[in-house]
């Protein structure tokens, strides 16, 4: 993964992520549009054979787009941590049920 900033203004950010695809961008974009500070967030894969998607964010008011993107990524990270914890718990319950 290699992140390149293509355009950065007060309310806008456009980055290119080399070596990623729908797998990573979709989950980030969906987390971004949940955020109330975001006006537009989208991603585009300009060519299907090159894996360099672009992520575009425009925020409302004083919110910095980099901060918003940072928060969205952290939110996904938190989700994955909750998943991990829930899965471990489910496994324990399953093993207990198997033994009894």
């Amino acid at each position: 993964m290699k992140v390149r900033v293509l355009n950065m203004t007060k309310n806008e950010l456009k980055i290119e992520i080399e070596g990623e695809g729908h797998t990573f961008c979709n989950v980030i974009q969906k987390a971004l549009i949940k955020d109330k500070r975001v006006e537009i967030a989208g991603y585009d894969i300009p060519h299907p054979l090159t894996s360099s998607p672009l992520i575009y964010i425009r925020t409302k008011g004083q919110s910095k787009p980099t901060k918003v993107l940072d928060d969205a990524t952290k939110a996904v990270h938190k989700d994955s941590k909750t998943f991990r914890a829930a899965f471990s718990k489910a496994l324990k319950e399953w093993n207990k049920k198997r033994q009894s």
């Binding site: 993964m1 992140v3 900033v5 990573f24 910095k64 980099t66 990524t73 990270h77 994955s80």
Partner: peptide, 24 residues
């Protein structure tokens, strides 16, 4: 499933590291 979670976490951590937060 565990490996998939590790890979996702790895991607997110790497992305956070490379985000241009400091420049603003």
């Amino acid at each position: 499933l565990r490996e998939a979670l590790n890979i996702l976490d790895g991607k997110l951590v790497e992305f956070l590291k490379q985000l241009p937060v400091k420049k603003t």
